[in-house]
Structure formats: C-alpha cells, structure tokens
Amino acid sequence: MKVLILCTGNSCRSQMAHGFLQSFDKTITVCSAGTEASGKLNDKAIKAMAEIGIDISHHTSDSVDKFLATDWDYVITVCGGANDSCPAFMGKVKQRLHIGFDDPSNASGTDEFIWSEFIRVRNEIKNAFLKLYFEEIKPTLRE
C-alpha cells in the first residue's frame, strides 16, 4: 500500500498527516509532497507532533515532481479553505481523496492563539486520518 499526501508547501498539514498515517501502520509506504514545496518543515508542526509522541523532524519537504513516476494506491490532498488551491496530481493513482484542513501557519494573533490553532488542526488531522485508515485503508490491506 502506497499513499501520497499532497498540499502546496509540504511543511505543515501534509507532514502531520504523513506522521499520523505512518504511526497507524508501519507497513504502509507514506510520502508527502507539495506543488510549491517550501524545502523545510514548520517548527510548530514538528513541536505539535512531538507533543503526542510522533517525530516528524526527519521528514523532508519535497516537490510533487519527485513522485510522478510512482504508482500510488491513494493520493490525498489536505489543502483547506478558500485561500488554498489544491494541487492536481498527474501521476498514476488508484484513488484520489480530498480531506481539507485550515493552514495553522496562516494563524495570526497571540502566541497562545497561534499555538492553539496548530493543536486544533493537528487533532482534526489525527481524527480524519484515523477514520480513513480504519474505514478505507485497513480493510483493503486484508484483500
């Protein structure tokens, strides 16, 4: 099973989703990429995931071009609101899904509010990807 998680910058939401899905099942190949990859991970995303015991600090922020020649079982876009444009994936994929989330790196206000947005989005990603794993991915692993 191979899953590619896409967003624009590949620094925050897609990285957290990548970390969660890989933590649910180590037998799944999970990668994440961006159409305009930033080249680095968001420090607050790393910290938010570390807070719950998932280390994504070793992940890399990669361009989607790196993955176009690979066959994927799932390609999942995680861009969120109206300010995000979801990337299109032109490679080989069996199933395309969209699970949108707000970008916490766009939050403004107090440090406490910004941090609370990272935690809120992290928890939303966890819940959505846990549901996806148990309802769609895990059942197909048994086939």
Rank of each mutant, 00 (worst) to 15 (best):
C86L: 09
I114G: 02
F89K: 14
K138Q: 14
F129R: 03
E143G: 12
V30K: 02
K92S: 15
K47I: 00
A17W: 02
T70D: 09
D25A: 11
G80K: 13
C79M: 09
K26F: 08
R120Q: 09
I54T: 10
S11E: 07
S105I: 03
I137Y: 07
S11I: 06
R120M: 06
D102G: 03
G9R: 00
F24Q: 12
Q95C: 11
N127A: 15
N42T: 02
T35M: 03
S85D: 10
L6F: 05
S116P: 11
A128M: 04
G53S: 04
G9Y: 01
R96W: 13
L97E: 05
K40P: 00
D73S: 12
T140K: 09
K131M: 13
V121G: 01
E51Q: 15
E135L: 04
S14P: 11
S116T: 08
D103K: 06
N106G: 06
L6G: 03
N123V: 10
K126A: 09
D71T: 14
S85Y: 01
T35I: 11
C12E: 10
F24N: 12
Q15R: 06
K40L: 01
L6S: 07
G81Y: 00
E36L: 03
T27I: 04
C12S: 05
S105A: 12
E143N: 14
D25I: 06
N83P: 00
L41A: 01
L132I: 02
G9F: 02
K66F: 05
V78F: 05
C31Y: 13
E135K: 03
V3I: 14
V93S: 14
A107N: 01
S14I: 04
S14R: 11
M1I: 14
R96E: 13
V93T: 15
L4Q: 12
T110Q: 12
G109H: 05
R142G: 13
P139A: 09
V75C: 05
L21T: 00
N106Q: 14
E117G: 01
G53K: 10
C86D: 10
F20S: 00
T35A: 07
A82P: 11
F113Y: 15
A88G: 04
S14T: 03
G80L: 12
F67H: 04
P104G: 06
I46G: 10
S14A: 13
A82H: 11
N83K: 06
S38D: 05
V64A: 04
K44V: 02
V75A: 10
A88Q: 09
S23Q: 10
S116Q: 13
T110E: 13
A128S: 12
T35H: 00
D84L: 05
G39C: 01
D73F: 07
L41Y: 00
A88V: 14
V30T: 05
R13D: 01
G39T: 01
E36D: 03
S85V: 12
K47A: 15
D103L: 09
C86P: 08
I119P: 00
I125P: 02
V3K: 03
I99S: 00
D111W: 06
Q22H: 13
S116M: 05
K92F: 08
N83Y: 01
G109F: 09
